[in-house]
Amino acid sequence: MSVDAGGRLIDGYTLVVFDLDGVIYLIDRPIPGAVEAVARLHAEGRGVAYATNNASRRSSEVADLLTRMGVPARPEEVLTSAAASAELLRDRLPAGAPVLVVGAEALRAELRAVGLTPVSRADEKPAAVVQGYGPQVGWAELAEASLAVRAGAIWIATNTDRTLPSGRGPLPGNGALVAVLRTALERDPDVVVGKPEAALFETAARRSDGGRALIVGDRLDTDIEGARRAGLDSLLVLTGVSRVPELLAAEPGRRPTYVAQDLAGLFDPAAVVRVPGPADAGGWSVTARDGGLELAGSGRALDALAALCAAAWSAPAVPQIRPAGPDAARVLESFGLPAGG
């Protein structure tokens, strides 16, 4: 059964892999409906996993945080870019090798757990530099990392998220800090471990026991692109970073399979839509007019979104979108697309 046939989205999958920030919680508070959604999945006996680019917490810490929020989680259900980076370096370096860490204590702990030695200065001759997000990362750490990479150390980035969500709006993420070193060194990291690379999702999908895995995320440039690279279906929820204007402008490698306002879309056929959809379904129509697109009709906002995706994704550039009538104007405004484009 599929959402296209009016059934529940979740009935087509045996495992749901969640991003965390922007999907399950925002910083340290659960997003409305998330606790209930995960509890319902557990009650139905469906597999659940969590894949996060956040390298500032260990898997056990993330599991404890989720449990305190009312989402019972085990460390083995949590896949972090910090743990994956440590495992990658363990496989490349001799036991006990020094690794210069730019990031939080959690990243150092993951390195120790796999038998490597975290260091903080370039003159300790690190074999590698591993760079992850940490709220206290500053110029001094970046300077030591720059010196170490110039001296020949492997440069590993846990992820390249440009921003991370907060209650006050998007804040600089690890990608912004990686950009500092990229500018100074005039080169890219040797390896980026986290999303949008496929490794985290491929590892999670192997837990589906031969069934199908669905990736649920809030970012087109990490969660959705990573799912597509891994060959997996994805659900974009509009509770975090990526919004409708970005969705309409998304390049093919960043287009989700489904879109929902929140996790209710897993269970309620009326709360989710497959994208792109027909340009004239659900009471809406989208037509090319005067060099732009015109949305006309009335009905479910998500059906309008599916129609807009179909039209915008087939255009050579993102066109202006205009409403034809008050219902269309209200929908466009709710999407952050005011009348006129």
Rank of each mutant, 00 (worst) to 15 (best):
E124T: 00
D123K: 11
V130R: 06
G132Y: 10
A109R: 15
A83D: 01
V71A: 06
K125D: 13
T67L: 03
P75G: 05
A106S: 05
M69R: 08
A128I: 09
A63D: 04
P75Y: 02
L93H: 08
K125V: 06
T117L: 14
D64G: 10
G103C: 04
V102E: 13
R68L: 12
P126E: 05
V119C: 12
V129C: 09
M69G: 10
P98V: 10
R90A: 15
R108T: 01
A82D: 04
V119G: 00
E77N: 03
T67A: 03
P75M: 11
V78G: 09
P98Y: 15
A86M: 06
G115K: 06
V101P: 00
A109D: 10
R92L: 15
E110V: 08
N53F: 05
L111T: 01
V102P: 02
P75R: 09
S56K: 08
S56D: 04
G103A: 07
A109T: 01
T80H: 01
L89W: 02
A109E: 11
V114M: 05
S81F: 00
P126C: 09
E105H: 10
A109K: 10
A95S: 13
S60L: 12
S120Y: 09
G103E: 12
R58D: 01
E124M: 07
V71L: 15
V102F: 11
V129W: 00
L79E: 01
A82F: 05
L65I: 00
E76P: 01
P75W: 09
D91I: 03
L93M: 10
E77H: 06
A127I: 04
